[in-house]
């Protein structure tokens, strides 16, 4: 269906408010992050003056001992949860896509059921259990519950990807004289890698976003960024933490936005194939 120039431009005109609606709150966080504290409450959307003080405060200054460990914890916990989920899901999705065995459908339904689970329902029993066995406020104490968020998602998205792979190419390569290992490495790995990678990104986003587990199951040592943001205090007791929180928010948002910019197409494919075509 070819759009006429008139249609093309009217659609262009409609997309502008959509993009503005999306960007306005994002720019506001940036704006607050660079506003000097003296004009923070002036209500001007575009800052009249720019300072990097807030970034200095959280990266090297008084709030850095709160923000930097949280950033480190977030990265470690999310990478671990993503790695474990994607590896486990890879085997599982391979079996679902390629092998015929009873219970295939059940596994997918259980994965879906687990992903519908209200997170807070897991928190109460885990809070009690973790305190008893010493996992409260530790990295593994967060990674384990994160698996309930990340593993079903990985299984669901990855098996959708694996079902689209033309597996017969592996045999074709073997017929052409490749060894099994060569066929796997040269044919299957390049076909499967984009799906695995996309799944890893989506899984990482989900873990990175978690707030409920992070504020409930940690106190100091293992606190992640979203939880730390919620408990931020200003440079002194009498100062609002608005600027510091905004600067921290900008720092944790930039990498995510870069990933989206680069992998937009794949992320869309992963989200939708995992959910709709299922």
């Amino acid at each position: 269906m070819d759009a006429t120039p008139k249609q093309k431009w009217s659609l262009f005109a409609v997309s502008i408010p959509v993009m503005l609606w999306t960007l306005i709150p994002l720019f506001w966080i940036f704006s607050l992050a660079v506003k000097p504290s003296s004009i923070q409450a002036d209500g001007k959307y575009v800052p009249r003056e720019i300072t990097w003080d807030n970034f200095r405060l959280i990266l090297t200054g008084g709030a850095s001992d709160l923000f930097l460990p949280a950033l480190r914890n977030s990265i470690i916990v999310c990478l671990l949860a993503t790695l474990i989920s994607v590896v486990l899901a890879m085997f599982c999705a391979y079996a679902i896509a390629r092998l015929d065995f009873p219970g295939k459908k059940m596994i997918l339904l259980v994965a879906l059921g687990v992903s519908f689970f209200p997170v807070i329902s897991l928190v109460t029993p885990l809070f009690d259990l973790w305190r008893n066995i010493g996992l409260f406020d530790t990295i593994p104490g967060l990674v384990i519950p994160y698996l309930s968020l990340t593993l079903p998602l990985s299984i669901w998205v990855l098996s959708a990807f694996f079902q689209q792979i033309p597996w017969e190419m592996e045999q074709a390569a073997q017929v052409d004289g490749a060894t099994s290992w060569q066929a796997f490495r040269k044919v299957i790995v390049p076909l499967a890698a984009p799906g695995v990678f996309t799944t890893a990104i989506i899984t990482f986003f989900t873990a990175w976003n978690d707030f409920v587990f992070a504020i409930s199951l940690t106190s100091d040592n293992a606190r992640t960024v979203p939880a730390a943001l919620a408990f931020f205090t200003g440079a002194s007791q009498f100062e609002q933490p608005t600027g510091a929180i905004s600067a921290a928010a900008v720092i944790v948002t930039i990498p995510v936005v870069i990933l989206v910019l680069i992998f937009q197409k794949r992320i869309v494919a992963g989200l939708t194939s995992g959910a709709v075509k299922g």
């Binding site: 249609q7 262009f12 966080i29 707030f211 979203p226 995510v256």
Partner: peptide, 24 residues
């Protein structure tokens, strides 16, 4: 349907999904 800022539009629309809910 959009033709012109197709890629940009999709990317921008995707950003709220990917940022942390606490930040939003």
């Amino acid at each position: 349907r959009v033709v012109l800022p197709r890629r940009t539009l999709r990317t921008i629309v995707l950003i709220p999904y990917s940022i942390i809910t606490v930040v939003s």
